[in-house]
Design a protein around this nucleic acid. Structure first.
Lengths: 192, 192
DNA sequence: CGATTCTTTGAAAACAGTCAATCTGTGTGG
DNA sequence: CCACACAGATTGACTGTTTTCAAAGAATCG
């Protein structure tokens, strides 16, 4: 499963065999079955996590017990609570597996060491961060600008693969609408 | 006005006098009066921009002519269209000045050069990116989870200073609600 | 001031949410 | 292999929030 990460690295940057080995040396794999937690609210998150396979979700639960999904992380994406990682404070998000998943974990200490030793990794992470930021801001735009139907259309066009993998009630939560509204919007939209 | 940036740099990282000089050497200041554009949709954005004073907004205009504000950038924040900067494609955002502002500009080429030469700058930018990403995701959470009133309360608590500086119709646009709804929500909220 | 821009208010309509019931598919145990 | 249980999806009727449209009040700026 490390090969998935290696492929990702080679695609996004240029690494020597020694660098790849150094990365492999501090990587740990963890399998999650459906529904299993990678992180629960209140715990401290100490890793950089790369998803080799499967699909995770990051979410909060409000005082009424309603889940609000901030992000889906499929294979070849990153997961974790950056806030908790940076500050050492307890996490404010939950992360669990929507599909059976394999996650590659590197502790913060090891990862920081790698960043110092491997400039290409540093550059790559920088690019990933910038792209994530762009994506987040597109999502903000959608959330504040679109109707329920437009949000759904936007999602399916932007992530056609995810649209088929995510249960509808979770998609509704991600879009900030109720499952009932999503259901109605889907029927309307395709019906004519 | 460069001192504002210098203070910011010294507060966020450790720089030698030579490094500061190198940064100053490629910095250009630009004044914007109220309403003036820093960037218009369709132009290519080539800078890293630091706000020394004033307040900018980044937004899009939809097909009905309605503005949707993605971000406010007050002094000591960054502005620009990262997507356009990274890809060289035309910008999809407008940026203009809400207050008379002074912006410090460094071209992409100069900035990349600085990043190579000054490790502390690289680290600082990395931290800024991570914080921006956290902030974006908090905003996503608010946008998909809160009612109009909760969005307003959340904003005033998170950015008490901005709440007084931003015209209400712009705040409404930022929150994804209409000015009328914001007006009603404000009366309700304080009324009892 | 006078004109423009911004904010507030009111009434009606559109939209999304809630609650409850039904339908569908899947997996499990008898 | 069937029947049942369960989780997810859909539907309907109703409620509530937010938008829309129009107008009247503030506030601001030249």
């Amino acid at each position: 499963m490390f090969e998935v990460f290696e492929t990702y690295l080679r695609q996004k940057g240029t690494f020597t065999p020694e660098e790849i080995d150094a990365i492999r040396a501090v990587s740990r794999l963890r399998k999650l079955r459906r529904g299993a937690f990678l992180l629960q609210e209140g715990e401290v998150w100490r890793y950089n996590a790369f998803i080799c396979s499967g699909l995770l979700r990051r979410y909060r639960i409000d005082e009424k017990g309603v889940e609000h999904i901030i992000q889906f992380s499929p294979e070849n994406w990153w997961a974790g609570d950056r806030e908790s990682l940076m500050t050492g404070q307890p996490a404010t998000y939950n992360i669990d597996a929507i599909e059976e998943s394999t996650v590659l974990l590197i502790t913060k200490e090891d990862f920081d060491e790698l960043l110092r030793k491997i400039p290409a990794l540093n550059e790559m992470i920088n690019l990933v961060l910038q792209r994530s930021l762009n994506a987040s801001q597109e999502r903000i735009h959608a959330a504040i600008s679109y109707t329920a139907e437009e949000k759904y259309q936007d999602f399916t066009h932007r992530f056609p693969d995810l649209a088929g993998r995510v249960p509808l009630f979770m998609l509704a939560s991600y879009l900030g609408i109720t499952p009932e509204t999503l259901s109605r919007v889907r029927r309307q939209g395709t019906g004519k």
